[in-house]
């Protein structure tokens, strides 16, 4: 039924196919710092980088710590005519919390905090054994697949651009000052982008497979 793993692993030629156009390629060892693209559609298949696991893992842990700070420290405060209001990210999530809008509050909380945090945890869980050696943890494959599936729904960077737009809208009305959480969130976005760029999922799948044996 399936390609037999036990049948003379040394000579066996394994194939992979481009996920975008289904074109077959012979699975080859990609040297570090090279990029393999699909011959037909040009989709990047693999881009292993030196020390990328250690780098991605440390960036993910950094991002988790920044996330804690970003959530609970004061984010922005607003002052006009002697009145002031201080907002944390949690307040922004709760903005829709009255009545009909409650589901939207939950969705916003998921998109800007819970899903990014879950992704970071899953990636760290997958990568710890790959960095320090040893067998991957139980269900590491499931965790990593979940992290990949959640990627489009992790919207922290969109939130920070939204903050910029909102600030311009109120800047005429009141004076705005940033709290530590704003800088933590901005740093979080940069760290997440760096981490996503350093990560090659194909290489991670191959390492997981090799370490399982």
């Amino acid at each position: 039924m399936t390609i037999a793993r036990e049948s003379s692993a040394a000579v066996q030629r394994r194939y992979i196919a481009c996920p975008h156009c289904d074109t077959l390629h012979v699975e080859a060892l990609i040297p570090e710092d090279y990029t393999a693209t699909c011959r037909h559609c040009g989709h990047v298949l693999a881009a292993p980088r030196r020390n990328s696991y250690a780098r991605v893992l440390s960036l993910a842990v950094t991002a988790l710590i920044l996330m804690l700070g970003a959530l609970f420290f004061p984010f922005i405060s607003l002052e006009a005519a002697g009145l002031s209001n201080r907002t944390s990210v949690v307040d922004a999530m709760l903005a829709f919390s009255d009545g009909l809008m409650l589901p939207l509050s939950i969705a916003v909380a998921l998109l800007i905090a819970l899903i990014p945090a879950a992704r970071l945890c899953a990636i760290a869980y997958t990568l710890v054994p790959l960095v320090f050696g040893g067998r991957p943890y139980r269900h590491a494959e499931t965790a990593f697949r979940m992290a990949e599936r959640l990627r489009p729904w992790s919207m922290a960077e969109i939130f920070i651009v939204g903050v910029a737009v909102a600030l311009v809208k109120v800047s005429g009305l009141a004076s705005v000052s940033f709290g530590p959480a704003f800088w933590a969130f901005a740093a979080l976005v940069i760290v997440t982008v760096l981490q996503d760029n350093a990560m090659c999922r194909y290489t991670i799948w191959k390492s997981l497979e090799n370490q399982r044996r």
Binding site: A81, L94, A95, V108, I112
Partner: peptide, 30 residues
């Protein structure tokens, strides 16, 4: 595109200044 929803969320959380200025999210956000 989700940016607009976040802008509304931030404004509604931030602009709560008594009689001076208050922002509420509209149902279109949902």
């Amino acid at each position: 595109s989700m940016i607009d929803v976040f802008v509304v969320a931030i404004l509604a959380a931030l602009v709560q200044l008594g009689n001076v200025a208050i922002v509420h999210p509209g149902i279109a956000a949902v």
